[in-house]
């Protein structure tokens, strides 16, 4: 993987958000490089989803900036950011519930100015749910529905993709396959930002990891560094790292 990268796919500078006097994010800095899978971890309520909303334009930060490919997008709306190559999935599913899986992806494809040679069926195949392409997505099991959301996000051929707990609802084998897919996406030169509670996959596939706690960034580094960081262990992992777990 590249050691030195020209511009970050995403750069978050000093972002703060408060909800009714409670700081959800305080001066968070974070960057995602193209070609890398970057993890974002932290306990529930740490502000991960809020940060995703700030990055994708669903939440306006009180202060701070968001840059995509070096361009300040803090004032742009969600759809403008998507046009600049930002895609995301949602922790609580935001599918087009009354459409089929195929049509969900097709809406994404149709939104593009140049279609490329992607097809809805091809994208569903890629995430592994092509068998259920014609089912109404609201009837799909959660895990599969998440994968449809991922396929839909990929339909806009994003340069940067934000994934909010994509593995919840998946079994071990599916999680493993998804991990491989995320690596593949990074290898295609995309930046991937992954929020996930499944620590084994985070530690396995991420190049770098950022740790949020109570709205503050408390650590960042390679998986190996994160495992060793005492504050991370205290705040998140809860226990000393298990030496039997594989290094990234």
């Amino acid at each position: 993987m590249p050691e030195m990268v020209e511009t970050s796919a995403l750069e978050v500078r000093g972002v703060s958000v408060t909800f009714g006097g409670i700081a959800a994010l305080q001066g968070v800095n974070l960057d995602v490089r193209p070609g890398e899978v970057t993890g974002l971890i932290g306990p529930n309520g740490a502000g991960k989803t809020t940060l995703f909303n700030v990055i994708s334009g669903l939440q306006r930060p009180d202060s701070g900036e968001v840059l995509l490919d070096g361009r300040d997008v803090t004032k742009l709306g969600t759809n403008r950011r998507a046009r600049l190559g930002l895609a995301r999935t949602f922790q609580r599913l935001e599918l087009f519930g009354s459409l089929s899986a195929r049509d969900n992806v097709q809406v994404g494809l149709d939104a593009r100015r140049d279609k490329g040679d992607l097809t809805a069926q091809g994208l569903l195949h890629r995430v592994g749910v092509s068998a259920d392409a014609d089912r109404q997505v609201s009837t799909l099991p959660t895990g599969e529905a998440r994968l449809v959301e991922l396929a839909r996000a990929l339909a806009i051929d994003p340069k940067l993709i934000l994934l909010d707990e994509p593995c919840s609802g998946l079994d071990d084998n599916e999680t493993h396959l998804l991990g491989n897919l995320l690596r593949e996406l990074a290898d295609e030169g995309r930046g991937v930002l992954l929020v996930e509670h499944d620590m084994s996959i985070v530690l396995t596939i991420c190049d770098r990891i950022f740790v949020l706690d109570f709205g503050e960034l408390i650590a960042s580094g390679t998986p190996a560094e994160i495992r060793r960081d005492p504050r991370v262990q205290a705040a998140y992992l809860g226990t000393a790292p298990d030496p039997s777990e594989p290094e990234a």
Partner: peptide, 11 residues
């Protein structure tokens, strides 16, 4: 169905 997801696709 989902205005938020609609916007995240660039529309």
């Amino acid at each position: 169905d989902s205005p938020a997801a609609f916007a995240t696709l660039g529309m």
